[in-house]
Design a protein around this nucleic acid. Structure first.
Lengths: 209, 209, 209, 209
DNA sequence: GATGAATGAGCGTTCATTCAT
DNA sequence: CATGAATGAACGCTCATTCAT
């Protein structure tokens, strides 16, 4: 009867809802980044400016909310990987990607931490991971062909090493928030085909650890 | 140290209590390793076969219990470091220590994770950390002199890198619980003075990630 | 004060909540009156017919709940004082106020008892106390001018004496719940400017104590 | 067989036990005076230098311990009353007794507070109370005969008024720990047969209350 | 007889989730 | 559709009392 009007009304409502949803995701991201999975829903709701129930209308459970955020993160990783693929020298792209990913990882420590494992079963996640590994895989193979990357490394190693670097960065981060660069460098040095390695000088070792 | 009679009397009295205390520590270690600091005291008590109150008789708070366990872990690390110092070639000792430490770290993931930071303020802990770093420091310096370790690495880097390797091992651990060796190897390769590096072959890359 | 529409909407929404809140306050008043600050929140919740968590939604802590109730009491005291100020003869007003206050005090024995001291630091409380003392002060001064009250008494003495009378009433209350009148009379007799005093007859001394 | 030896042994043991018992009572008195009935048994045991179980060997329950202490207090009251009876002028004795009793009461506030009522059923207590009232009664009658005390006052009023004065002293005690004298004076003024009254001057009214 | 050890029952408080409006 | 209100289940912790030595 009133398809247009209804459609419009729906769109209007959805515009609101969409804004709420994004506010929720943003607030949740901040909260989880800061407090890990212990962040409480009430705080997120308050920060997002919505009622608690609104969150549970969009996400069946807190766990679902976490999953949604991880998805967002993952898609950013994908973007980063694809952008890095454009680099002339694959090694540079790889390094660039690992740097970006490590930083992201560190910022959202609490999220990635103990959570990843539980959510690796999620379908969409698995698919995105597939695409990410493909993208990285291409980069890795090219870097090997170009003689920069040692031959016994595989695409799947890359995310793992990123996690490692982020962990190192977090562990040492008290002393200097940029120390992750130091440890990522060591990792990269361990990955080079030749013995060439960057000087670690620019960043001093942690004072007190 | 103590007069025998007294010691005996004390031991006799404590026979039960000591057993309980150890049961508590063991249970707590398991619980924290699995669930991190979110492990709940009631579960620990049940697992240890004692009442909750018994735990709070020995430890003023949950935090204190965590501290006690961390101390145990730390003292094991210290032992490992001192034993590693005995190796003829310092590099071998360093590798050995990092292997042992990484394994320990992985086993007690939940514990070390978000906890360490808060307890670095504990006096005893700080002192033990000092001794650990001393021990590692000697090893590091010797390894540099012997030409195996790159010069721009410091003792404080070692624990950080152990955390990184443990993280990598955990992240990849689903596929193969021994994968930490692969990532620690990459790190060690990044630390060698020369370009020499071990083959990563022996452990295959993670299948699914 | 508020726009009607808003006020109505607010009231409608709060209809249930407001009823609960009042049930909580009433139950809490009863509980604290009977058991002092040791009254337990679970009992209050049960008596009010709500869940424990509902109480903590309205009051940040048990202490806050106590404070809220004390405030209610205090505002009733203020009212009593202001009403008493209207009496033609100040001495009559003073006696009237002390009677009312003593009765209130006795009814909520547990509350006022060990609690008052801790909450005298509360801002609102301090302010209300100020207003109360002002009100009493005027009455006191007038009673002195009118020649009924001895000159060496001050406004601050009044609440103290009320507490004393309430204590006496409670101590002797077993025998006869109206005995507080007897002891308040003795106090008032001690306060009169002249030697005139009421007969204590009407209320017999406690039988067994 | 060995009556003497046994007796001796028993006496020896009892000497120890007696010392413990007194230590317990002393510690308990301190604890209850400070924290009221919420004082915890563990603290008392520690303060007394005995194990918790020792307390429960002597007293069936915490309540029993409280009863025992109240008895001690009561017997001190009795002494005070008897000593006061020796005064030439009964009124002076009465005032003296009420002063002493008020001070005692205030010192052990927490004890007397909500407890007295529950223990008035205790046989020994009842009997002691009887003797106390007898002693006071004699004093009261004599004071009436000597023309100092108003006629419509009875022995049973005295303990009640002492409680009142102690309450007043406690309520006002923040400002000045000696204020109880002020309020007891008002009470005594209310009790005098004639209109004669002391000046309240010596102790100023509470500043802030 | 005395003790340190143990505990069940209870406390105040929090939070993911559901319900009524 | 959105929300404030409500709550059950759980948590860390305490304490009077009992038990084993």
């Amino acid at each position: 009867m009133l398809p247009v009007g209804e459609a419009v009304a729906e769109r209007v409502l959805r515009a609101d809802a969409q804004r709420n949803l994004e506010a929720i995701l943003d607030a949740a991201e901040r909260a989880f980044a800061e407090h890990g999975r212990d962040a409480c829903v009430a705080d997120i709701a308050r920060d997002a400016g919505v009622g608690q129930a609104t969150i549970f209308r969009r996400f069946e459970s807190k766990e679902d909310l976490i999953a949604a955020i991880l998805q967002r993160k993952f898609s950013m990783l994908l973007e980063a990987a694809e952008q890095a693929s454009g680099r002339k020298r694959a090694w540079d792209g790889l390094r660039e990607f690992m740097q970006t990913a490590t930083q992201m990882h560190m910022r959202d420590r609490g999220l990635f931490e103990a959570i990843a494992e539980r959510l690796m079963a999620d379908r969409r996640m698995v698919e995105m991971k597939g695409r990410l590994l493909e993208s990285i895989g291409a980069l890795v193979e090219r870097a090997k062909r170009e003689g920069d990357l040692r031959k016994d490394v595989a695409a799947q190693d890359v995310p793992v090493l990123v996690c490692a670097a982020a962990q190192a960065g977090t562990t040492a981060g008290r002393a200097d928030p940029e120390l992750w660069r130091r440890y990522l460098q060591i990792l990269l040095d361990g990955l080079r085909a030749d013995g060439l390695r960057a000087r670690l000088k620019p960043v001093p070792p942690p004072a007190a650890h």
